[in-house]
């Protein structure tokens, strides 16, 4: 009996130590979760807190106010919401077809040797820092649009109401195009991932039944991932809405709503980037924080919904 005691006590102490170590790891890693939660909560709290004076001054009417005047201390976000939606939606209108086509090319059409390098090049487009894209936008793209593209559009498409006007090197159009460049890789990479995960039995089944490749894509592959494409589009939208730097560089920072596609405009994020450091009054600073609250709400909702859709798609298609 006495001889058996030491091993037993040794093993209990080993067991105890082991449990202690596991518990310590669990606690330390759980602390990281606490930090993440804290960041998320503080982020919302601090931004709303900054916006509080403006929220109590203008209330919900801030969303429908069109004035932005530091002299009379009256602020409203309607024109900026308009500018944000206009730039983001036009960018999506151009980007989604291009991105879907790229995804199709990369999953169905491209020769195997090209898929990885071309896919990587498209993703590198997303890696270009927005400040560099913005610099390119003002110095190279803006003047090119002003000299060549916009005059052509005005003379050929000017009969369409919003497309008549005068060329301008900064304005809505360059902002839309810069945003397009930014969101194409995002939408393309999600669409590509989802299209690639469509079970190959389905695809080869359709082909075996005599469908052409395009019929297979349209009737079999796309319906499988339709909701996922919507989610990818939403993530692209969220990215476009939140982009501040490149937009503020190329959009011209106008205080009034533009009369046409070429005129200077402004967005929520663009105004925030341009004015926050130099806000003249406390109420202006707070109103700019109010813009940040609007951005935060849009991005939280869009990202939440899009991520839930993508998760459901992945579960259904059986990829982790």
């Amino acid at each position: 009996m006495a001889a058996e005691a030491p091993p037993q006590s040794l093993s209990t102490s080993g067991h105890f130590r082991r449990r202690l170590g596991d518990r310590a790891l669990r606690v330390i890693t759980a602390l990281a979760v606490l930090v993440l939660t804290l960041v998320m909560v503080l982020l919302v709290y601090e931004v709303v807190d900054l916006a509080r004076p403006s929220m109590s001054e203008f209330g919900v009417g801030f969303l429908s106010g069109t004035e932005w005047n530091a002299v009379t201390d009256k602020f409203g976000a309607l024109d900026l919401i308009w500018g944000t939606l206009a730039t983001s939606l036009i960018a999506l209108l151009i980007a989604v077809p291009i991105a879907s086509a790229i995804a199709l090319f990369l999953t169905e059409l491209a020769p195997a040797v090209l898929r990885t390098p071309v896919g990587m090049l498209v993703e590198l487009l997303a890696a270009i820092p927005s400040v560099v894209l913005g610099l390119w936008g003002i110095v190279v793209m803006g003047p090119f649009l002003n000299d060549h593209v916009e005059p052509w559009m005005i003379s050929h498409l000017g009969f369409i109401p919003f497309l008549d006007g005068y060329p301008s090197p900064v304005g809505l159009l360059p902002a839309c195009l810069i945003l397009t460049i930014m969101i194409v890789p995002i939408v393309a990479s999600i669409s590509r991932e989802l299209l690639a995960s469509v079970p190959s039995e389905l695809k080869s089944g359709a082909m075996a039944l005599g469908a052409t490749r395009w019929e297979m894509v349209r009737r079999v592959a796309l319906p499988q991932v339709g909701a996922g494409l919507v989610a990818g589009t939403m993530l692209g939208f969220a990215r476009a809405v939140g982009e501040a730097i490149a937009v503020t560089q190329v959009i011209g920072g106008s205080l009034v709503r533009p009369q046409n596609l070429y005129a200077p405009a402004d967005t929520l994020a663009g105004r925030l980037a341009a004015q926050y450091s130099g806000a003249a009054t406390a109420l202006q600073k707070s109103s700019l924080a109010y813009l940040a609250v609007i951005l935060l709400v849009i991005s939280l909702i869009t990202n939440l919904v899009a991520n839930l859709i993508v998760r459901r798609m992945r579960r259904r298609l059986g990829t982790p």
């Binding site: 982020l43 969220a238 982009e243 926050y276 924080a289 991520n307």
Partner: peptide, 22 residues
């Protein structure tokens, strides 16, 4: 936690600037 990380990744970077400022 994964969802929270994805949502955090989607917060506009300019808003993160305002947050740290505050």
């Amino acid at each position: 936690i994964r969802l929270t990380l994805n949502v955090l990744a989607g917060v506009p970077t300019i808003v993160i600037g305002v947050f740290i400022f505050s």
